[in-house]
Design a protein around this nucleic acid. Structure first.
Lengths: 327, 327
DNA sequence: GTGAAAGCGCTAACAT
DNA sequence: ATGTTAGCGCTTTCAC
């Protein structure tokens, strides 16, 4: 790998000049510039990010902590963050957090050691874990999806999402609703979907029941057990609001395998609108999270913080009900 | 952010000593070690990866180029690579390649500039593109999924996969098969699935037809057009072998929406076994690619190359037919 | 066992 | 307009 020195020698100039044309900073004569450009090509020169980051103390890289790539939801988020970051001239360094607090600590450690200039954190964690982390981050940090009091957060309008889903089900004539929530112990922003569901059912006098699932466990089998139980315990059930599309998909499969017709016997609405939701049969009615805007806002917030601007403490991104064929 | 200097000062030793305890290299007195450890904790010190990489000329980071996160297939690969790399003591830097040759060039540029010590490349590209790239990589490179002559490659046993799928369909009594292949112009290893399909049909005297799809386009709608056409042109069709699970899922949806019963009227087998395939209804019969072994082998190959060992030019990972309910 | 010093590839004053 | 030089934070000889 050739270095700036090689280029300088080859072009017959000093390294400072090379650096100047590299960064388009400072004045360089056309001849020199030409010589340098040529030399760079000839030597197939690629500037060393590390060295540059070292001297500038900055990386132009945003660290992103994800719980996993298992749920396509996170992949979509990852992809959009990458895109938004690129538009702002930043790179992205992903870290998949292992289980529990330790996993998250490791991720943060890694990202800090990599000198990222900010971290987007998507992992839901209890308040205590957050507090512990916040003590020693010393880096711009924003929470995406999960909402944390002490940190600028960007979330979907989950109350609205819950409302939209519930009202839609009721409007379609459902009288006996079941909601499958995420892990309510984590105090996630997503819990608002569940609260909205409950409140709306109460207000409208619709019978309802809430079941709590252990989410990020990817316990696909655990989910199945839960769904099994739900169907057993709720023979009257005519509508399900699942807190994510994977769960909704599993409900559809279970229902169909038991001979229920969808939407005639049971109506189902999901949450997220991951890309397969439109592909399955019947295509899933769901609440779409705006991945692009979610990601862009989070990236924007990091960039702001890097530039010493203080972003809004909470950004709420609108959601949208996508009516397809399961309702 | 505290540096090694701060730690040294705080511990009352030289930076060399700090470096020694940091790397557990060279002899350090217990007292000194203690003082340093304490100082590191007190200052919340995190060694700077960049600086370390700069001086060592190595990163312990493997670069991975992916076409997108859109198909869950790639997410699963990404996740497994991360896992395998961690086990080998490496980090992973993902780069999502944009469209075409330029996107790939940019990705490679970025990864090289980031001083990764090797690149795992999953993107299918034409032979010319590959040749152009190979000229100036100067870095351990391995091709995953896509098979490239000049580069150590790790692939699934796609011939076997195609055979398994085709035989299974025939064994179930199908007489009129359709295969939806990927983009055959790219000369991917995956094309072997198609060749195996064709050969087996010929050998067994089963009527067949092959349709080519433009894959990585995520043209979900394009896919739909194609499927539509396939059903229109093949009223006799009683079995489909799709080259990936997403496509298979779309076939199922289309078939069901047209009133076909699965598997009674049409049997469908997919390829990949992405995690949702087991969740949809009916659960998809498919050829499972062994993500874990695929990834581990690729990582292993990079590590070998870093250590100046030459890996096998081609590793073929077995596949497995997972029979579920669409056949 | 420990410290001083050189240098990894680069940028940013400071000279010229 | 261009070159010289001092570091960025770290590892690694080489003395002591």
């Amino acid at each position: 790998m050739s270095t700036i020195k090689d280029v300088a020698r080859c072009a017959g100039v000093s390294i400072a000049t090379v650096s100047r044309v590299l960064n388009k900073k400072g004045a360089v004569s056309p001849e020199a510039e030409n010589a340098v450009t040529l030399a760079m090509q000839k030597l197939d020169y690629h500037p060393n990010h590390m060295a540059r980051a070292l001297v500038k103390g900055r990386n132009n890289t945003i660290g992103v902590i994800l719980p996993s790539f298992n749920n396509p939801f996170w992949s979509e988020i990852a992809q959009e963050i990458e895109k938004s970051a690129k538009e702002e001239g930043y790179h992205v360094l992903f870290s998949i957090a292992g289980e529990g607090e330790k996993g998250m600590d490791e991720s943060i450690s890694y990202l800090r050691a990599s000198q990222v200039c900010g971290i987007i954190q998507t992992f839901s964690a209890s308040q205590e874990v957050w507090s512990a982390i916040l003590k020693h981050v010393g880096l711009p940090l924003v929470a995406l999806i999960s909402d944390v009091k002490e940190v600028p957060s960007v979330v979907s309008d989950d109350t609205q999402g819950g409302l939209l889903a519930t009202r839609h089900l009721i409007a379609k004539g459902c009288k006996n609703l079941v909601h499958i929530s995420g892990d309510l112990k984590l105090q996630k922003h997503a819990d608002d979907r569940s609260f909205a569901f409950i409140e709306e059912c109460r207000k409208r006098g619709v019978a309802y029941r809430v079941y709590e699932s252990c989410p990020e466990k990817l316990g696909l089998e655990d989910n199945l057990d839960l769904i099994n139980r739900i169907f057993y315990e709720n023979p009257q059930m005519d509508g399900i609001f699942a807190s994510n599309d994977i769960m909704a998909t599993q409900c559809i499969s279970y229902a169909r395998s038991q001979g229920f017709r969808i939407p005639d016997d049971i109506r189902i609405v999901g949450y997220d609108d991951i890309s397969i939701s439109a592909l399955i049969y019947p295509p899933l009615t769901t609440v779409r999270q705006n991945y692009a805007q979610l990601s862009k806002t989070a990236v924007r917030a990091i960039v702001d913080m890097v530039h010493e601007k203080t972003p809004k403490p909470l950004e709420v991104v609108p959601v949208e009900l996508i009516e397809r064929k399961t309702t």
